[in-house]
Nucleic acid binder design. Structure first.
Lengths: 206, 206
DNA sequence: GGAGAAACATACCGATTGGTACATAAAGGA
DNA sequence: TCCTTTATGTACCAATCGGTATGTTTCTCC
């Protein structure tokens, strides 16, 4: 998978993966526009030209950081939706596990995809759109899981999977705001529980 | 109320209130750090020194803009919480009316208090905190309305007003994200309806 | 042991950031 | 009429923004 063929010139003096992870943490904490190239190089332990040589430009670095985040830090959603036996358990686990992840010590609270580029200058619109598409994919995944539940009989045939997904996606995204505002884990979990109180009226089979 | 005593020097050549409103719209659309002083003066129709003379600095202008927003653009929440006869109707109206306001044509979608300063450089931390406090006040107002419902008998005595407020506050804030992502009004309203499906399990008197 | 290729650090680029000095203009008070 | 006060437009400030040119170092290939 990782092709590290013997390279020609001078070998890179830093670990690209580690540097990318440091960059991700800066973007995660300060957002795309709030993270200056100086902030990034300082956290990555490299000089400017090394950053541009290895990643191209700030936006490309950010996109790689978002992919790394999706790969390593946001697995809870997909895991919950895939592994739980019913749609209800899947959504409940998705909320609960994300709430826990959003306040892990040593990491910026909340989700990078939600927080890193919500508003800003017109120049960064492509970056904002890229994150918006990732958020839309989460909503689509929830809707798909609800549809699966309808097919398997644990969700009412009269349920509206898109509306249910929009609601639980909204709660999920809202959790990132609360986490960034400093809310404690138990309060986030109480929000998840409260949101699940809507499940039966919305989706329970008759 | 408006003290316009005859002033001494040269009179201001622009309408301060109108200029502040234009600044508010820029902050609302682009956020605090995403709005440059050049963007602001262009929208306000004035030159830099006039801005600094009338408002002090960028941060002071932002704080005035936030107050103007609270006074003129975010009345739906307080109105709904104050006027509706039951806690349930109050929360439902709060969500519904805000959802409608969040997608009003000609205005930036979503709430300035939620969107304008979520992440950024360490220098703007005071601004972010000011908005976080405003968000906390909304949650406190919801909790107070639920407590009022408990006192008046339309909310169960076993209900947890802080948990209920945290949940509906999360949904309210999440609506701003969805609105900024371009969600249509009817879909936002469907989210509000879904959220209200949790009311009876959470708060209905036994 | 070159020769070529790639990464390194320093030092720089023009553009933009928030914020001002300064001279001028327009008002009220004496 | 003159003086004080305040606002205005131009032109500017140092600092920072994202991004590079350049000369040197360190590697592989022949």
């Amino acid at each position: 998978m990782k092709k590290t063929q013997p390279e020609r010139g001078r070998p890179r003096a830093f670990d690209r993966d580690v540097a990318l992870r440091r960059a991700m943490e800066v973007f995660w904490a300060q957002g795309y526009e709030g993270a200056s190239v100086g902030d990034l190089t300082a956290a990555m332990g490299i000089e400017r030209p090394s950053l541009y040589g290895a990643f191209g430009c700030k936006e490309a670095l950010f996109r790689e950081a978002v992919e790394l985040y999706g790969r390593e830090e946001s697995g809870a959603t997909g895991r919950a939706l895939a592994r739980e036996p019913t749609a209800r358990a899947a959504v409940a686990a998705m909320l609960r596990d994300n709430a826990a992840v959003y306040v892990e010590p040593g990491k910026p609270p909340g989700c990078l995809v939600v927080l890193a580029a919500l508003v800003g200058t017109p120049e960064s619109a492509p970056v904002r759109q890229a994150l918006a598409e990732r958020r839309a994919r989460v909503r689509a995944a929830i809707a798909a899981r609800v549809r699966q539940g309808m097919a398997e009989g644990d969700v009412s045939r009269d349920a509206d999977p898109d509306a249910i997904a929009a609601f639980y996606g909204t709660v999920l995204h809202g959790l990132s705001l609360q986490a960034r505002d400093g809310m404690a884990k138990e309060d986030l979990l109480a929000i998840c529980e409260a949101a699940m109180a809507a499940w039966d009226p919305l989706a329970a089979p008759s």
